Simulated scan of single mutants.
Amino acid sequence: MPAPEKPATSVWTRPRRPQREQLTRDQIVTAAVELLDQEGTEALSMRKLGSRLNTAATSLYRHVANRDELIQLVVDDVYGELEPPATAERSQWRAAVTRIAADLRAMTLRHPWIAPELGQVGLVHIGPNAMRMSSRLLAQFEAAGFAADEMDQAMGTLMAYVIGTATSEAAYLSMIARSGKTEQEWVADLRPAFDEASQQHPRLRAGASAQQDTHPQQIRDDAFSYGLARVLDGLTARLNP
């Protein structure tokens, strides 16, 4: 007979232990975010984090049970950087959703390690900051006039676009950072090889030539805005069948 599945656990579902020493959970989370920003998720370990805080790893386990719980905490801490707008009037819902989407993308690009974590579902996103952001976003769709059974789907569609796009961007920018070049330098170095490879593909060549004098970041910003606008066009059409 197969062993019963282990129930899902989360740092948010168990009581917080009383503090018995000077080190706090907030200090641990802050140090973990700094480590992740500098070195990525592969570098995160309780031992390395303890060394960064000048304490033994065992001291960290008084505040977080394991590395998975620590990831839950740091993800929610980064969500705390977002300041979702108050619920908009019906005519302004699209502008409010656009701002939230842009802020979420910017947050992901500031912390590239978080991109894969945002694609996770379940308990990892029931922290207070993530819940506040989701609630504010749902409120915008409610103000727009979406039915109760469609608000979640509308939010899910939007988040899938934003997270998917930001994840690709974060991976691209991380690759460039590892090269030691700026984005402009990296694109300029790649240009001769692209020109040669696209000789037999005039449509690709024409599109790249049209943007040759545009800063790569502006191209990414424009592409994100275009895709976001098309997603919102589709959602708007649901309100005006």
Rank of each mutant, 00 (worst) to 15 (best):
W12T: 02
T167N: 02
Q153S: 15
L109D: 03
Q72G: 11
E5C: 06
E89T: 11
L82A: 01
N54K: 08
P192R: 05
G119L: 00
Q120V: 05
M107G: 04
V231N: 00
P128C: 03
A57W: 14
E21G: 11
Q22C: 05
M155S: 04
D222L: 13
A148M: 06
L49C: 09
S10E: 04
L173E: 12
R203V: 13
M133K: 03
R220C: 11
A143D: 04
L36I: 03
Y79I: 02
A177V: 05
R99P: 04
G50A: 03
L109H: 01
F194D: 07
L239H: 00
K48N: 14
Q218F: 08
Y79R: 01
T13Q: 06
M133D: 03
T41A: 15
V29N: 00
R94P: 02
Q153T: 09
G122T: 03
A88T: 04
T24K: 10
M107I: 07
I219F: 06
I100S: 06
L190Q: 14
L36C: 02
S135H: 15
Q120R: 15
A101L: 02
I28T: 06
L73K: 03
A57S: 15
D37V: 03
Q212N: 14
I114F: 02
Q200A: 15
A237G: 08
R203E: 13
T108Q: 02
P84M: 05
A170R: 01
L44R: 03
A237F: 05
L158K: 01
R203Y: 13
R191C: 11
G145D: 00
E183V: 11
E183K: 05
I71Y: 14
A32T: 07
I28P: 01
A57T: 14
E83Q: 06
Q199C: 09
A102K: 08
L82D: 00
N54Y: 11
A223C: 04
R203C: 10
D152E: 14
V29R: 01
W93H: 01
E142D: 15
A3Q: 12
R178V: 13
T236L: 05
Q19V: 14
A143T: 07
M107A: 13
R238Q: 09
M159P: 03
R47H: 07
D77M: 06
G127T: 05
D76P: 06
